[in-house]
Structure formats: C-alpha cells, structure tokens
C-alpha cells in the first residue's frame, strides 16, 4: 500500500467507514509503530479534525469556565503563585473597549449597523439568561438535597455586604454575593471549609466581576458533617494551601 492510499485508509478509519478487516489492518500497523502508518494517521487526523471548522463557533456560558477551573483545582494542589504580571484580562478589556467604541461610532451612521448591534446585545442577553438558568438549576439542586446547608458569611465591618453559600455534599457548593469589592491586582479571594478539627480546606478561588457580583460554583471534598464554618480570605493570585491572612468573611454552618 503506498503512502497516499494508507493515509486515505486512515481518514476512512477515523470516519468509521472501513470494513472490520481493513480496520484491523490499520490497528495492526499502528500497534507495530510502523512509521508510515503513524505519519499517515497523524496527517489523516489533522485533516479530519479540520471538519470541525464547518461548525459555527459558539461561546459556552461564562459559568462553565469557572466550573472547569474549580473542578481542576479540586483535583490538584494550588500551583505556585505566578510572578506578578500585567493582567491579560485588563489588557484585553482595554482593547475590547476601544474596539467597541470604534465600531459603535461607525454603527451610528448606518441602520444596518444598529441591527448588528441589536443582534450582539441579544446574544449577550441570551448568554446571561442561560447563565442565570444554569445557576438557578444548580441552586435548586443544592437546596433540594437532603444534606443542604445555607450559610451567611459576614464581615466585622457592617458596611461590607454579606455573601451567602449553599452547600450539599453530592450537589456542590455555591457562593453568591453582590457589591463585593475586588481584591488588589495580584491578589484573589479564596473560600475555605473550616472543619471542626484540623486545618481549613480550600474550596476554590474567585474574583468578583467588575460590577461586584460574585458566583462561585465548586465542590468540596471536605465532609459537610465535619465542617464548622466557611470562611473567605484574601490570598496571593493562584490561591494558598492554607490561609495567609485573617478571613474577612466567616459564617458558621447551621444544622
């Protein structure tokens, strides 16, 4: 079999369009680490995967990113804090604002432009509503769980808004708040489960949005039955294995 035929067979293999005996032949060559077969399969994979570009891109809900990062943090100890750096988010925001201003001025001069803008707004609103539905679904699941707990986290200063947590062992831990000031650059907020005995256990790091809203959807491996309180402290970016500052918000777990 020449290389081009082999590569074509690999493309059909990846698209599940080969007979069993043909598949087995490819499997055999790959298992034997045949160099031509490995190269043919790599090139076939590159081409077949490009079919993905026929799908319209679709931004996932913003909450998915937060869920992902908290999920992987739960699987690994916090990485060492990176060296302080200019925020990509801030840099990006600056460019995004500039771009929006330029585009916005242009749009004022054409009806078509305003339609585009309306479509963009509708897409943003749709994303926001889907986020909201996702949150409500999650909160509902937590509240309906048999082991559900609601915790108010307050600070010593009466002017600082409280945060509220909803926690169920199987359904997860949700932290909400509004009017929360962002920590300084290079710092983050970190949620802790404080057990009745032993050291606090990290349940995730977060920053409020620019308008002060907060939502953290996370999971905690700490047993809910052995938890005494939840606490939030300010930590270096990337989080800390243990609190390095006095927790600003604390809330005892009710029964």
């Amino acid at each position: 079999m020449d290389f081009e035929t082999l590569r074509s067979q690999c493309e059909l293999y990846l698209l599940n369009a080969l007979e069993l005996n043909e598949r087995e032949e490819i499997d055999r060559l790959i298992a034997a680490a045949d160099p031509d077969a490995l190269r043919a399969m790599a090139e076939a994979r590159d081409l077949v995967a490009q079919l993905s570009f026929a799908a319209e891109p679709a931004a996932p809900p913003a909450l998915l990113r937060s869920e992902l990062l908290n999920r992987i943090r739960a699987e690994a100890p916090p990485a060492p804090a990176p060296a302080r750096q200019p925020s990509r988010l801030l840099a990006f925001s600056g460019w995004a604002v500039a771009a929006v201003l330029v585009i916005g001025v242009g749009l004022l001069y054409s009806e078509r432009g305003s339609l585009y803008r309306a479509a963009g707004d509708a897409q943003q609103e749709l994303t926001r509503l889907r986020d909201e539905i996702r949150v409500q679904r999650k909160v509902l699941a937590v509240l309906m769980a048999r082991d559900s707990r609601t915790v108010r986290l307050a600070t010593q200063a009466p002017a600082v808004p409280q945060m509220r947590a909803y926690w169920s062992q199987p359904e997860g831990l949700i932290l909400t708040g509004s009017g929360i000031a962002a920590p300084p650059p290079g710092r983050t907020l970190q949620l802790w489960v404080v057990p009745k005995q032993g050291k606090p256990i990290s349940a995730g790091i977060f920053r409020p949005l620019s308008d002060g809203r907060v939502l953290l959807i996370t999971e905690s491996s700490a047993p809910i039955a052995s938890a005494a309180a939840l606490a939030i402290s300010e930590e270096p970016e990337g989080g800390s294995p243990q609190p390095t500052t006095t927790p600003a918000w604390v809330g005892a777990l009710g029964e």
Partner: peptide
C-alpha cells in the same frame, strides 16, 4: 433571584 456571574481567580500568561 440569583443573577450573578463569576470570574475565575487566576489568568494565564501565554
């Protein structure tokens, strides 16, 4: 009613 969003803690350097 909850109408809040989250942002993650750390950002990456490419």
């Amino acid at each position: 009613m909850l109408m809040v969003l989250a942002s993650s803690g750390s950002e990456a350097t490419p």
